[in-house]
Design a protein around this nucleic acid. Sequence first.
DNA 1: CTCCCTCTAGAACGAACGCTCTATCCAGAA
DNA 2: TTCTGGATAGAGCGTTCGTTCTAGAGGGAG
Lengths: 201, 201
Amino acid sequence: MKTKAEQDTGTGPGPGTRERIVRTTSRLMQRQGYEGTGIKQISREAEATLGSVYHFFPGGKQELAVAAVRHGDQEFTDILRETFEGRQDPAKAVLALTGALAEGLRTSDWAEGCPVTSTVVGTAGSAPDIQQAAAEAFARWRAVVSDQLREAGVAEDEAPALAYTVINTLEGAELAAQVSRSEEPLEIAGRHLARLIDSYR
Amino acid sequence: MKTKAEQDTGTGPGPGTRERIVRTTSRLMQRQGYEGTGIKQISREAEATLGSVYHFFPGGKQELAVAAVRHGDQEFTDILRETFEGRQDPAKAVLALTGALAEGLRTSDWAEGCPVTSTVVGTAGSAPDIQQAAAEAFARWRAVVSDQLREAGVAEDEAPALAYTVINTLEGAELAAQVSRSEEPLEIAGRHLARLIDSYR
DNA sequence: CTCCCTCTAGAACGAACGCTCTATCCAGAA
DNA sequence: TTCTGGATAGAGCGTTCGTTCTAGAGGGAG
């Protein structure tokens, strides 16, 4: 058996058991939501036994969901950073972003939208810790966008609010794209957000 | 016992059984999502027995969800029409709309967001008829907004796309508001949408 | 060697799930 | 009056749910 460090960080031949469980939970809840995803399905698809799941996540399904939301948070934060840092113009970056989101939806046959949204919807009232993890994810994404907007010349007192709308419009457009199985909402959102950003520079 | 017409249309002392079931389903799925809502809970809270539920909705849970989505569709279509028709300026109408959405969220202790969104999320791949009913709802809302924009002077070839972003941004902002338990995302979305609309007139 | 501790393994529990089924009620038709 | 059929009523089906629990595997420390 591998040492603890290897198990938990995945420095071995593949991802460790814990990492495999988190990734599987995130993907399943992204597709089926929190209530639609069972722990036994997670353990089956992650190729981990039920014992392992409860060993790493003694808090049960809720703790799993929080970990999955944080995983999705980190994933999209990285995408945001990469997309914005490669470009000077934030309007162009937003267009690249909508393209990437559309591609992700299309290549998953419109099944994989925002992992945070699908996990948190329906749990809002009953699981405050999941809700808080989702709120932190949104806040982090906004902070990244806001920083990039300021660097590109948007006024200090306008950038945070503009970042709010950028993230929220992307979220809404991705949902519409998923439901209508069409890239159009995302394309249009990109154009309108680019126009809105340009109007603040 | 009342006649069939009275039962189904609610011309009696209160809403008929069928209408009561639909309304309860819509409210519960708005709060808990599709998978998080049980048929027995619906029958209990609608004060209808399980037999009645399956009598009116032999298609089971999926048929119930479709009816609930259509109910939410009609509800918000009415709100849209009332809000826009009372005002000349569509930018002002959008601001009124964000205010109304924020109030609905706040007065339900942030539990009741968009009934269509919360019902359809997580069912995208597995229940095509629910997905289609949701797509039709979004399309209808867009059509209402698009008509009002054209009447207010937005170009014919810009109005449909602009309506897309109006609806999608409202959707995303309402979700963010619910998760963060704050009216701020909706207020900001209203301001930015008003600015975007004005830029097209 | 033995001990220890992390991790794996899966049987088992009570509760809840969606749904089926038969029985009953009762106003209007004949 | 009897008959009919929509609506109500809820027990019960098999399945799955989240969770608990005990048992064992296996490498490092003493």
